[in-house]
Design a protein around this nucleic acid. Sequence first.
RNA 1: GCGCCCGUAGCUCAGCUGGAUAGAGCAGCGGAUUUCUAAUCCGCUGGUCGGGGGUUCGAGUCCCCCCGGGCGUGCCA
Length: 574
Amino acid sequence: MQIFSEPILSALARLTGQPLAQLKLERPRDPKLGDLAFPCFLVAKERKQAPPAVAAELAAALAGQLDGISASAAGPYLNFRIDRPLLAREICAEVAIAGERFGASDEGAGKTVLIDFSSPNIAKPMHIGHIRSTILGAALVRIFRHLGYKVVGINHIGDWGAQFGGLVVALRRWKGEVDLEGDPVMGLLDLYQRSKAALKDDAQFQAEAVAAYQELESGREGEVRELWRWVTEVSMRGFLATYARLGVSHELVRGESWYEPLLAPTLERVKAAGVTEISQGALVVQLGELDKSLKETPCLLQQTNGTTLYATRDLAALFSRFEEFGFERCLYVVGGEQKLHFRQLKGVLKRMRQPWEPRVEHIDFGLLLGPGRKKIASRKRGEVLVLDDLLDEVTEAAEKVIEAKNPALAKRAQVARDVALGALIYNDLKRERIKDVIFDEHEILSFEGDTGPYLQFTHARLASILRKAHANEDAALRSKPDWSALENAGEILVTIGRFGDVVRSAAARAEPSELSGYLLGLARDVSTWVSSSDNRVLGTAGPEGAARVALVRCAKSALGNGLRLIGIPTPEEM
RNA sequence: GCGCCCGUAGCUCAGCUGGAUAGAGCAGCGGAUUUCUAAUCCGCUGGUCGGGGGUUCGAGUCCCCCCGGGCGUGCCA
């Protein structure tokens, strides 16, 4: 699309005398008006003329100046229309040449982006509460990578903390009562829940738990350390199995425990910067002068009893990460409930005058709730909705739909998994990440309308057309396309041309919903076009058919690339 | 109490960071299948953009006040 917008912008810059960077083109409200639009308000203001007069004047001045692009004034707007055959030829060629790399760029060359996402706690299976960070983070990883960044997805496993004391004691007492052989993760969950209850009303248990945690912290080898290691191992195996089902992976898995040796040096560092003080017995960094709204909430780094806190660990991790990677951006894909925590962290960095503080960003997202804004419960296990159970359930529903709609389909099990994943991922990425997600099971399982499977279905239809064209050895495949046959696909082509811009913007804002929304619009336009009997591809001979095949190929490629970027599988048949 | 976020059709959400007549999905109603997947497509119904001020040539979008909901709020993570 740049191939069209660049000459327009430079011509406008020349005619208006405005710097190129200040001019921007937008999309007309109604696509019938044109493919690109230039609002003339600002230029009009500068020239003290009426906007429509400026538009008319510019239109006249541009007449015949731009190859294959015509300009027309419509009120205060200057609209540009790209010659249809030229548009079709250029876009189809661009997509065909770029292939998997369509929409890619090298803007990230030599830059590293860290993305901290998913980060479950050990001794429990991944549950519904982890789905948003995991899906958002994995999508961001792919999007940034597409733009040439070196991306390091980090899994900051919660493998430390006082709760392990309780778990260790639970293991000692009830090891034999749960199934730790067949399904160790679920067995651990059981123990974890029992230890939580025991910590509440069993003083003996409580004391033993504290002692166990102290031993763990001391670093001594022995029973406690061994149990902790075993729990970590078993849990990680469970996480990796779940990640494999989700198509997710991390470049760096590093638990909180890894940062333990860095805690003391980090405290020293903050103290040396002269920003700490003792308040009510605790070591804190006051942030009120930086930001009035943080006046009442200093960042606590060390408790009265000397132990460190969450913020201390995250601060240690941040310094360590900056030193190790020299990141361009460090994104924390963590729920909005922790907003204060990250503002405090950044506040401490600011007070320490770390120039890279703005590169640290909290990529926050809204709550995940059930219908009626109630907490999501599991039908199977009551309290926690385990991610694997959810995947099973949605996959089962997908299998039933395949049974009904396409019983002859080969690879049914695989496609069911793909569709289930598409449904879950799209449900999470379709709205702005800051919005709370109402997890409506009915909607997830319907696979109709504004859903992942709809996008996958559109992609599969295009794949099917191409497959049949090749199987028939369609004559159109050997013809040279007549690009003027794609007159009615202009909107689709313009949309495809915007793909790269959308990917860039989604990365800049760390907002995958921008891409998912774009893909929905593209799929809708493509579905409409494909569904019209005027646009039959197969059986349309010669150059006209060749052009349609090219459009289908181009649309399938763009749609497929976009879906894969957000993590949605793209089966060829479904 | 204080801080931050959200409020657009009955429900779930878009609205391109201030521009042209506010758009989708679900739900409801009515259509489309001898031909490329009906997990689809087409049409209809449905709006005081929470309310009130302000800035601007122009406000769903920016500022202020209010209302409603959510999250958070020094020794948890």
